[in-house]
């Protein structure tokens, strides 16, 4: 089954990090990414720029409106994701728990809907 692991974290924490702390964190992410890839479970994944860079678009009655900022203001923000393919939820949860942000923020595990074509 495919699962999207959504990484939610308070962005301000990362902002206040020293260069050294930041490097440590990045190293942990690289190590995690390598581990999932080598396990053959990785389908994709990316980090996202902070929500200050977000633009939200809505079309209502044929008219597009654009607003600055994320879809919803929350204490923790979507900061990145991994897309994995594993046998079941237990396996997905085990990978989620290994993402560095699991210790400071939250990882939402969502099964991906597969449509028959």
């Amino acid at each position: 089954m495919q699962y999207l692991l959504l990484i939610y974290e308070d962005e301000s924490v990362a902002k206040d990090m020293s260069a050294e702390q930041n490097k440590d964190l990045m190293d942990r992410y690289f190590a995690f990414t390598r581990e999932v890839r080598e396990a053959g479970a990785l389908l994709g994944g990316d980090a996202l720029h902070p929500v200050a860079s977000a633009t939200t678009v809505r079309v209502r009655g044929g008219r597009a409106t654009t607003t600055d900022g994320p879809f919803a203001e929350t204490k923790e923000q979507l900061g990145g994701y991994y897309l994995i393919d594993v046998p079941d939820l237990d396996a997905a949860m085990a990978w989620a728990a290994k993402i560095p942000a699991a210790e400071t923020g939250s990882i939402e595990v969502r099964p991906v809907m597969i449509f028959e074509t």
Partner: peptide, 14 residues
């Protein structure tokens, strides 16, 4: 069903 909760006794670490 949709989230893939498995049918098994968890492995020792869990």
């Amino acid at each position: 069903e949709t989230s893939g909760i498995p049918y098994r006794v968890p492995a020792l670490p869990e």
